[in-house]
């Protein structure tokens, strides 16, 4: 597992007040929203804000692309690494 995935999981737990969940409880490939971790649209906005602050990335909240990036921890890691490479 890439180190960045654990960093993302830590941001998810802290920014979304998931007090009873640890990094090990989150599967990197599992969907974050709906059936997976059970997060909702407010969580998506809150997580977007936290990730922007932590990794200094740019997000377009309206794009279909963003939805794909926010599918799982793994897809978020891909997206952040790609932004870091092109920055």
């Amino acid at each position: 597992m890439r180190p960045i995935e654990n960093e993302i999981k830590a941001v998810i737990i802290e920014s979304l007040d998931l007090e009873d969940i640890s990094i090990d409880d989150i599967d990197s490939a599992e969907p974050l929203f709906g059936d997976g971790l059970g997060l909702d649209s407010i969580d998506a906005l809150e997580l977007g804000l936290a990730l922007k602050k932590k990794f200094d990335i740019k997000l377009d909240s309206n794009s279909e692309e963003s939805k794909k990036h926010f599918y799982s921890v793994s897809t978020l890691a891909d997206f952040i690494e790609q932004q870091k490479r092109t920055a």
């Binding site: 407010i42 969580d43 906005l45 809150e46 804000l49 922007k52």
Partner: peptide, 9 residues
């Protein structure tokens, strides 16, 4: 700073 969406809602 940007406003927390959770706080706002």
């Amino acid at each position: 700073d940007e406003v927390s969406p959770k706080d706002f809602s």
